[in-house]
C-alpha cells in the first residue's frame, strides 16, 4: 500500500511540516527559472496528499542542493524529494529515459557504456580499448547482474504493468 507522503518522509527521519512557506527555496532554484518546478509549492503539496507522487515537478530537480543549504528551517528538501521520487517509481511511474538508463546498468553495469567512437579515442590516446571496469571483467559484471536481481531492481524496472503505462503516455 502506498504510504501518505507525510508518513513516508517521517519514516526516513524527514519532515516538511516545519516549512513556513517563505519561498527561499524557490528563489534559489536554478531549475525553477526554466521549468514548472516551484520548490515551495512542492513542499506544501507533499504535506497534503498522495497527489504529489504524480507531480512531474518531482523530476525537474537537478539535486543541486541550493534550496536545502539555504532553507531557514533546515528542511532536508532534496532528501525529501528523492524519497518521494522513490515512492512514485515503486507505483510504476518512471520517465521512459530513466527506465532506459536503469536498463543499461542492469545489462552492462554502466549507465553510459563504451561505444565504438570511444574505443577508438582510447586507442588514439595509447590506452587499453576497454577500461578497468566491469567492461573488462565479465565476472564482475555477473556480480552486478546478480545484485540487481536480488534487490528486486530488475523486476522494478522491467515490470510489465509499468511498461504498458509508458506506452500509453
Amino acid at each position: 500500500m502506498t504510504k501518505e507522503p507525510v508518513k513516508l518522509l517521517e519514516d526516513e527521519g524527514l519532515t516538511f511540516l516545519t516549512c513556513m512557506q517563505c519561498g527561499t527555496c524557490t528563489g534559489s532554484c536554478p531549475s525553477g527559472r526554466y521549468t514548472s518546478l516551484n520548490t515551495r509549492r512542492l513542499v506544501l503539496s507533499a504535506r497534503r496528499n498522495k497527489d504529489v507522487y504524480h507531480d512531474e515537478d518531482l523530476w525537474m530537480c537537478t539535486t543541486c542542493y541550493q534550496c536545502q543549504e539555504r532553507c531557514p528551517r533546515g528542511i532536508k528538501i532534496v532528501d525529501g524529494i528523492l524519497t518521494l521520487r522513490t515512492e512514485s517509481v515503486h507505483m510504476g511511474l518512471m520517465l521512459p529515459d530513466h527506465r532506459k538508463v536503469a536498463g543499461l546498468v542492469i545489462d552492462k553495469g554502466h549507465a553510459v557504456p563504451i561505444n565504438d567512437a570511444n574505443r577508438e579515442r582510447r586507442k588514439e590516446l595509447g590506452m587499453d580499448e576497454l577500461p578497468e571496469t566491469v567492461h573488462k571483467y565479465p565476472d564482475a559484471l555477473e556480480q552486478v547482474k546478480k545484485l540487481v536481481e536480488v534487490t528486486g531492481f530488475v523486476q522494478l524496472v522491467r515490470n510489465e504493468g509499468s511498461e504498458v503505462a509508458e506506452e500509453g503516455q
Binding site: 539535486t63 528523492l82 521520487r85 522513490t86 517509481v89 515503486h90 518512471m94 530513466h98 538508463v101 536503469a102 546498468v105 553495469g109 554502466h110 549507465a111 553510459v112 578497468e132 571496469t133 566491469v134 573488462k136 571483467y137 565476472d139 564482475a140 559484471l141 556480480q143 552486478v144 545484485l147 540487481v148 534487490t151 528486486g152 531492481f153 522494478l156 524496472v157
Partner: peptide
C-alpha cells in the same frame, strides 16, 4: 579499481530504489 561498475548514477538509482543504490555503491 578493477571490476568497478557505475557508481550507480545518483539521479536515477537513488531516485528509483534506495537499497539498490546502496548495494551497488557498497560493492
Amino acid at each position: 579499481l578493477a571490476g568497478a561498475s557505475c557508481c550507480p548514477a545518483p539521479g536515477v538509482f537513488r531516485s528509483f530504489d534506495k537499497v539498490t543504490w546502496l548495494t551497488l555503491a557498497a560493492r
